[in-house]
């Protein structure tokens, strides 16, 4: 297997056009004996390295592991809450943030909250000679690209963001997850939610109204979706109610984030 450490846009593009897989922190694509002809490693790509945080947000380079970001975050931060629920301690020490964003399974733990926070991905593709960026969004466009950075703005329209997930065993694949962002203006409350695990890609929706009506509205939307098992409906509603409950208990104390 050939090992390519790309340092220029041209090098990355050559890899992309030859369908060379990009590796993150671990080497999952090599598991159970599979050996690609070559892989491209962007962890030392000289554009964004490490974690750069300032008052306007976080910039996460391709070398940053989940556990490094976790350590840099305030433990109350919702991103920390998400990362703490991802895998095991040893896994978080090798899995990169960019890898988790770049290779999302239909249900990816980082996606809902990154989406709500309005994260931007920075990438190299075959059509531009400079690094591009756009809002993180599912599904990714079909043309190949290599992620070189993740920008997470500090400011958010939400007063409160929460994350919940459901798995079969404590350490097995995530089957369902929910990210919710809550905002309030006067008596009107807005809830944006991103739910992974219901179909091929995450379901996103927004409901607004008096706070006591939020739960009912979400439940209506889910019912309209169809194809959601009663168990998953109940699970999502329980997650939503749990989040709303948590919000009510916190709202009077301080605004989140």
């Amino acid at each position: 297997m050939r090992w390519i450490e790309a340092h220029t846009i041209r090098q990355v593009q050559r890899c992309l056009s030859a369908n060379v897989p990009i590796v993150g922190g671990g080497s999952w694509l090599l598991s159970d004996g599979s050996v690609p002809e070559a892989v491209c490693d962007l962890r030392e790509y000289p554009w964004a390295q490490g974690i750069t945080g300032n008052e306007s947000g976080w910039m996460i380079g391709p070398d940053v592991t989940l556990s490094q970001w976790l350590q840099a975050l305030d433990s109350e931060n919702v991103i920390a809450e998400v990362i703490r629920k991802m895998g095991t301690p040893i896994f978080r020490r090798v899995a990169t943030v960019i890898g988790a964003v770049a290779n999302p399974q239909p249900v990816a733990d980082l996606y809902p909250v990154m989406r709500l926070l309005g994260a931007d991905i920075f990438y190299i593709d075959l059509h531009h000679d400079s690094i591009q960026h756009e809002k993180l969004m599912w599904p990714f466009r079909a043309n190949p690209r290599a992620l070189v950075g993740l920008w997470v703005p500090a400011s958010t329209p939400y007063r409160f963001i929460a994350f919940r997930k459901y798995t079969k065993g404590r350490l097995t694949r995530v089957l369902l997850n929910l990210g919710t962002g809550l905002a309030q203006q006067g008596d009107i409350m807005t809830a944006d939610f991103v739910i992974g695990g219901l179909s091929q890609w995450p379901y996103e929706d927004r409901v607004a109204g008096a706070s006591h009506s939020i739960s009912h509205q979400i439940s209506q939307r889910l019912r309209n979706q169809g194809n959601i098992t009663p168990f998953y409906q109940a699970l999502i509603m329980e997650m939503c109610d749990d989040v709303l409950n948590q919000w009510e208990h916190r709202a009077d104390r301080r605004s989140e984030l």
Binding site: W3, V23, G25, G26, S27, W28, L30, P89, I90, F91, R93, V94
Partner: peptide, 9 residues
């Protein structure tokens, strides 16, 4: 730091 050596190249 403890890490899984099966995932490291």
């Amino acid at each position: 730091e403890p890490v899984p050596s099966c995932l490291l190249l």
